[in-house]
Design a protein around this nucleic acid. Structure first.
Lengths: 193, 193
DNA sequence: CTTGACATGTAACAATTGTTACATGTAACG
DNA sequence: CGTTACATGTAACAATTGTTACATGTCAAG
């Protein structure tokens, strides 16, 4: 087993992530991937253990990156209403340059649902980590149960509308729906206070 | 090209649908599928044109079935609030026996996003048909734009929370979020009237 | 009986798959 | 020098893939 501080592994992982973002995982095969990242199929298995493990490792890194960005949005927008943060994140995630993150998430997620054994490490926490991040920006005056339900609602709504946008390409319709959610969310939060 | 009224094709399609619901499409290969439905790979290609066309045809039938069921819910619940219909459909779709429909939808959807050429016929309308169904049960007093946004919101929210439930297995949390949505949706509808 | 459309059967193609065994290199450190 | 850990190279395995060419069967309508 290679050491955890190997930077060859890290380099390969970063290059592979780029490849995954461009090509998806459904038709992924190790040899073309290895060729693109300047390596060999043999070595990808050596460094990551298996194809599935490589994909899972890549997805965990990607998730962390996106969540780091969300955390930065929260930090920069301290004091903003949760509904505004949701809209800011929506704008960030649905920008042309970030769409490929969403696409990859949805692809791997769908595969993971049908084959939890293969991608279980990714699936676990795929939603719950987001819900926890969202809970943290909801008013502390709410009960734990209310925060949980409202955070889940916000995450679910944004995720569903992202999927809509990616599928239909109709950004205006999806963004209008997000705006409607924002006002409804504000009302909901006010009513619980 | 085989005629459209061939019932051999129809039988094979129905049997294939059952197989897809149990096994997903990612690891699907024609020979095992053919064996299970009492046919040969050769004939599946003959009847459907290609593997991808078979999957797409199956998905369109499945979507129609689920949407027919939604329409039946609407018919039986005439006069109910939209938020109640949403919750009824949520209960139907997340029941143990129907979960596999959701799983298959999300799997194919993810694949379709990364490869629109392959599953384009399915992707087109995957969301818009649902949004139209939802628009139809919103008050006619709303403006067209409002109906569109609110319908998109309702569909997106339910879809996102379905994905959450399937991923996390936490039905209570997801259902609580749906309930929160229902009350918010009612408020939203009232405010527009 | 014959035409014709639908269905099936047999068999092959050419390419690719993830993974592994075995051996070699490299470079830092004692 | 020699040990050790990490990295790479070569090559093969065994199985499977979607699709196609070509031939045969089935069965109702003319």
């Amino acid at each position: 087993m290679p050491s955890e501080k190997s930077h060859r592994r890290e380099d390969l992982l970063n290059a592979s992530i780029e490849y995954l973002l461009e090509n998806g995982v459904a038709d992924l095969s190790l040899r073309p991937l290895a060729a693109k990242v300047g390596s060999k199929a043999r070595l990808l298995v050596y460094h990551f253990g298996s194809k599935d493990a490589l994909i899972t490792d890549a997805m965990l890194v990607i998730r962390q990156r996106v969540q780091d960005n969300f955390a930065a949005l929260v930090r920069d927008g301290r004091g903003q209403k949760p509904s505004q943060l949701v809209q800011d994140f929506w704008a960030w995630a649905t920008s042309k340059q970030h769409e490929r993150y969403l696409r990859l998430f949805f692809e791997v997620h769908g595969l993971a649902l049908q084959n939890p054994k293969q991608y279980g490490r990714y699936l676990e926490g795929a939603f719950t980590t987001w819900v926890e991040l969202m809970e943290a920006i909801l008013p502390a005056t709410l009960s734990r149960a209310e925060r949980r339900a409202l955070a889940s609602l916000a995450v679910g709504t944004v995720v569903g509308l992202m999927l809509d946008y990616l599928s239909s390409g109709d950004k205006k319709r999806a963004s209008d729906a997000v705006a409607q959610f924002a006002t409804a969310f504000d009302v909901l939060l006010r009513s619980k206070q």
